[in-house]
Computed example of a mutant assay.
Amino acid sequence: MEYILENKELSIRIESFGAELVGIKDRINENEYIWQKNSKYWGKSSPVLFPFVGSIRNGKYQYEGKEYEIKTRHGFARDNEFKIFNRGKDFIEFVFEYSKNTLEIYPFKFKLFIKYTLKDRSLEINYRINNLGEKEMYFSFGAHPAFNINLDLDNNYEDYCIEFDKNEIGNSKVLQEGFVVPNKEKEIFKEKKLNLKKDIFINDALIFENVKSKLIYLKNKKNEEIIKFKFANFEYLAFWGVQGGNFICFEPWDGITDYINSSGKLKEKIGIRKLESNKEKKYDIMITV
């Protein structure tokens, strides 16, 4: 089911399936800022990544002497129905809870809350993960919103850039068949500006670790069209798109896809997070257009 938040300037659309953001539309000029799910290129708009980011090597992992099989990329929360937890005039909050089915592939009891709040020309998204079990819980988490690259007679993909709030080293992890190659990086940009080009994601996502900036911008270099993106409590920042798909994904991650030499043991997984019993972990992003 689709839900709508509106004010005088923006209209926000969220689907209960995956609690996925599927629209940020300017009510004045009719611009749509979110990618509109074209399955020819990519059939999502803004999935949530939980309880894993990326892929699990061989589709299996071990925890406390038992092997679990999970074939889906980026966990499973994005492929499940969320329930309404709370709702007001300018916000809506969803919840997804463990079940018998999730326990078969992920042996932890959890609740995942996603709250969308509309503030003037900004959308704030708050994530909360609760460990309901008696033992510590191991997980990764990430956001994955895709923003439209508006192409017309006057614009092309190369007119756009990503600008960082602070100077960065700009070295990306190297991927091989979707998995990280250990101790290997490639310089993608320097200082503050990452220029887009059509083949920039030919080798999959660009993944940067320990980015100093917590504020980045998607800019059109010709007309200064801007999307402002703030994020908090994430260790990694990734960018991704597909050639021919006129979008760019901003992906703050707390966790990372498996390394090619991963042991398969959950507690040894690179980037895995640990949450104590009855504790909560929070993440936040804000999108301003």
Rank of each mutant, 00 (worst) to 15 (best):
R121F: 01
E187N: 15
G245M: 07
K44L: 07
L151H: 10
N220C: 06
F189Q: 04
F234T: 03
Y63N: 07
D199C: 09
Y33R: 05
N261P: 06
I34G: 03
I285W: 06
F82I: 10
I28S: 06
G88Y: 05
F229K: 04
G142S: 09
L21P: 07
R73F: 08
Q243F: 10
D159T: 13
K222E: 10
D159F: 12
Y41H: 11
I34P: 09
R73M: 10
D159E: 13
E20H: 05
F229V: 00
L118Q: 05
G255I: 04
Q62L: 12
A77P: 11
L215R: 15
F231T: 04
K111Q: 13
Y106N: 01
K219H: 03
K135N: 15
K173E: 14
F239H: 01
G142Q: 08
N131A: 04
E136S: 13
K37W: 03
Y236D: 00
E32V: 11
E30L: 12
N150V: 12
K282L: 13
F94T: 06
I84Y: 08
C249H: 01
K119R: 10
K274M: 08
N29P: 11
I188M: 14
D199R: 09
D254R: 06
I14T: 04
I169G: 09
E20R: 06
K281A: 15
G75E: 06
V53P: 01
F91P: 09
K60V: 14
N261S: 07
L21S: 08
K184P: 01
S140F: 00
E224K: 15
R57Q: 11
S172A: 12
I4H: 08
C249L: 02
S262V: 02
Q36N: 11
D284T: 12
D258F: 08
N31T: 14
L153N: 15
F76I: 08
N210L: 12
R273Y: 07
